[in-house]
């Protein structure tokens, strides 16, 4: 009895999973932009992030996929959740408000941007490189980070440091002012 999946089925399975990921991503993005309650919007964002992580996996980069989960889901989404908890005690009231003119305008703008980008992408002639100099594995990413892109790496660390300091200062200053 051959219980292995026949090689013919594999691409179909693969496409199926890929489509699933795309649907998850789009569903998450829709939820993130349309949900009335902010917490659900964040949930949509998380779902979207997870879907994108899956898409990265299809782009031969499990490392970035996991980093996507670690950073976006584990840090960014939690930060946003925190912001909601701290700043939106009455989210029900918030939900009742509907955007006036912004609605149709937003649809138009979003649609236009998507259309422009997508059509450009579809019609453009992309040059496929003749040869790949490496496989983009984790080791190679690490090596690049510490050789060719070490300057950017350092800059990013400075950006992060400044971001932490800046957010501390901003949040702290508000507190002092509120108390006195």
């Amino acid at each position: 009895m051959n219980l292995s999946i026949s090689p013919d089925v594999v691409p179909i399975l693969r496409e199926g999973i890929f489509l699933g990921m795309v649907i998850v991503t789009v569903f998450g993005a829709l939820l993130a932009t349309l949900a009335k309650r902010m917490t659900r919007a964040v949930l949509g964002l998380i779902v979207c992030f997870l879907g994108i992580a899956g898409i990265y996996y299809f782009l031969n980069s499990p490392f970035v996929a996991l980093m996507q989960i670690l950073i976006y889901v584990g840090a960014v989404a939690i930060t946003i959740c925190f912001a909601i908890m701290l700043a939106e005690p009455d989210e029900m009231k918030m939900a009742a408000k509907t955007p006036g003119l912004a609605g149709p305008f937003a649809v138009l703008l979003g649609g236009a941007v998507t259309w422009v980008l997508a059509s450009t992408a579809m019609h453009a002639q992309w040059m496929t490189p003749a040869v790949k100099i490496n496989e983009g594995s984790v080791q190679q990413v690490g090596a690049s980070l510490l050789t060719m892109y070490s300057m950017v790496f350092e800059l990013v660390s400075i950006v992060l440091l400044l971001a932490i300091l800046g957010s501390l200062v901003v949040a702290r200053a508000g507190r002092d002012k509120a108390e006195c």
Binding site: I46, P62, F63, L66, M67, I69, L70, V73, G74, A75, A77, I78, C81, V138
Partner: peptide, 18 residues
């Protein structure tokens, strides 16, 4: 046997906080 198993553990552990 995942090449970056340690990263995977931490990635999913961070979901747990959510």
């Amino acid at each position: 046997d995942i090449n970056i198993g340690l990263l995977m553990i931490f990635a999913f552990a961070s979901v747990n906080i959510l």
